[in-house]
């Protein structure tokens, strides 16, 4: 009886271990047929790194050029057919560019994403979007005061680098380290986000106390509604507390990511997406242009092609850094006129 107890417990653990190691790979439950055209990771699945990883691998096996970046690349104020990559596709009359943007992902988190869930791009052309929003204050740069509301926290370095704004407890760090390194945990998150009604079952029952729990095991289509941007006449000038590239942590992470791609023999074009200078004071604007030229120099020095599109008019911005659908069109047109970019596109892959 006693021996049997331990035997059955061992069997239980073995089954669990086996299932945890096999299921994420045998049953990824990801509809890869959706990864075509102007597909972008659905907004509500912004934390689904398993899905992102599957999408990356899909892109890696194809011929399109991944356009990696944050919500500006993802297209926060427009639908998937009017984003930057979609406009670039329209202008090149083929599906050449894949939207690999992820809402809210800042350079430090993106660096983690590329390291933790590597797509394995080798000798490819890659476009990376750089958004100066992440250097527009010590808070955004993660060099300011401790902030508990950082996006994509679990992707940040937990042990190797100290980030001033990110000071979680030991338990949180450990939990992030474990959950992101064990595939079954990211797979469970993926299932919750893609197949179930919400990430937390218990929270769902609290919100739907009298609904049949079976409803939890089904998911409605992504219900992202494009938010309205700021009206141009309501845009106000602000003084921006820029963090310069020599001091910026986000810039350090961005360069690290770009060099990571570079060392794998990839050709990189870095698009510094236009910032809404209409919402800046004169002094902030001056600093912005100085930062821009400094970044350009650093990128060139590292063998990365800097692409700086012209700034569209005020009405083509939805907020301080995101263009409107029309704005994306203008930016894409400008990029497609850039000689260096054209040269980059013509290179064989």
């Amino acid at each position: 009886m006693i021996m049997k107890k331990l035997k059955y417990i061992s069997i239980a653990f073995s089954i669990l271990l086996l299932a945890a190691s096999v299921i994420p790979f045998a049953f990824p439950l990801t509809d890869t047929s959706l990864f075509t055209g102007n597909y972008r990771i659905p907004y509500s699945m912004g934390d689904d790194y398993f899905l992102y990883s599957r999408y990356s691998k899909h892109i890696e096996s194809g011929n399109t050029i991944p356009v990696i970046g944050d919500s500006v690349i993802w297209g926060h104020y427009t639908d998937s057919s009017h984003t930057l990559s979609a406009n670039l596709n329209n202008l090149s009359h083929e599906f050449k560019f894949s939207n690999m943007g992820l809402d809210g992902i800042h350079p430090a988190a993106m660096n983690g994403l590329m390291n933790l869930y590597p797509a394995g791009y080798k000798k490819r052309k890659i476009i990376v979007g750089i958004n100066l929003l992440w250097m527009s204050s010590p808070r955004h740069d993660l060099t300011g005061a401790v902030n508990s509301e950082i996006n994509h926290k679990s992707l940040l370095p937990q042990v190797s680098i100290s980030i001033p704004s990110y000071q979680p407890s030991f338990e949180e760090r450990l939990s992030s380290l474990i959950t992101r390194s064990v595939p079954v945990f990211t797979w469970i998150d993926h299932i919750r986000l893609t197949r179930f009604a919400e990430k937390s079952f218990y929270a769902w029952t609290m919100e739907n106390p009298h609904k049949n729990v079976i409803n939890y095991f089904s998911r409605d289509m992504d219900d992202f509604k494009t938010p309205p941007g700021i009206e141009p006449d309501k845009m106000q000038e602000q003084n921006i507390n820029w963090v310069t590239p020599d001091k910026s942590l986000q810039w350090k992470f961005m360069i690290e990511t770009l060099l990571y791609f570079k060392t794998r023999g990839n050709e990189i074009a870095a698009i510094i997406t236009p910032f809404n200078t209409y919402m800046m004071t004169g002094n902030s604007r001056e600093q912005y242009f100085s930062i821009l030229s400094e970044m350009k120099k650093i990128l060139r020095a590292n063998g990365i092609i800097p692409v700086i599109p012209s700034k569209p008019g005020k009405k083509y911005f939805a907020d301080s850094s995101h263009p409107t659908a029309e704005g994306y069109k203008l930016i894409a047109e400008d990029i497609m006129k850039n000689r260096e970019f054209i040269k980059f596109l013509k290179k064989p892959q």
Binding site: M1, Y8, I9, A12, K199
Partner: peptide
């Protein structure tokens, strides 16, 4: 019963992993 113990451990751990959003 030993079998019940084994099954219940399997059930409890699976339930925690799938349905509980981790927070200590």
């Amino acid at each position: 019963k030993p079998v019940f113990r084994g099954i219940s451990i399997l059930f409890m751990l699976t339930y925690i992993m799938v349905f509980i959003t981790y927070s200590s």
